[in-house]
Amino acid sequence: MTPVVASSSTDAAQIGVWGLAASAILIVVAVVVSLWRQLGLERSMLWAALRALGQLIIVGFALQLVVGDDDPLIWSFLWLFVMLCFASWITAQRAKDVPRVFLLSFASYLAAMAVTLGVLFGFGVYEFEGRTIVPLAGIAIGNSLTTNVLLSRQLISAATEQRRVIEGRLALGLTARDAFQPHLRSSLRTALVPQIEATKAVGIVALPGAMTGLILAGVDPLDAVLVQISVMYLVLGSVATTATVMSLGISRELFTPAQQLRRLQRTTG
């Protein structure tokens, strides 16, 4: 099967140092607005702009180590592993009430990677190389992270605030799985609906990032659209897989083997 995106490089748009400096005028505009309206956000804006610049330049250099045609794939997998660990750590920091949250989120991101990259590479949509592995995994994990944190908080809230109802079902002889099912379903819907809505609105409300970047880089808009669509599907598939694995994992952690709802020590509201 011919890959949708050819492996040969396209003429990249090079804005250069002066182009970058000129685009920074827009940061000045934002700072001026903050000063004018006395928002007190100037330092925050400048720090954010500088931090983004620093982080992305480092990432750019690092990516050069893995995206070359001759670079060994082991570096891509190492990058992928670090991304999985970092995403799991961030999830653990933002959803501290979830038992064994690091392991659960790691497993959920890993499953999402296996499913989504498996489909994209298995069907030859993209060539299996460093240039594609790292960016695709990054998009998938990045989007899944937000959903995972939201979902984790939803499930923990349900387990604590709806304890009376859940124990009401357990007391009727329902299994833990059945007793928690309505809350699981509701939390999954809450976590997934924003991504579904974003997928529906794409192109109408805003042009998505990957497509915009490709068009700016000189790629034919229709080719850019095909890439963007595959990326949207990648994100949706990744988010759905992550959320499913995470929610099933959390559901198991919430109950004892004797089908009792555990008491959680809440650290967040």
């Binding site: 009376r164 124990e167 079902r169 007391a171």
Partner: peptide, 9 residues
């Protein structure tokens, strides 16, 4: 088991 606050589904 019957609870003080009836859990309504």
């Amino acid at each position: 088991m019957i609870f003080q606050q009836p859990p309504l589904f």
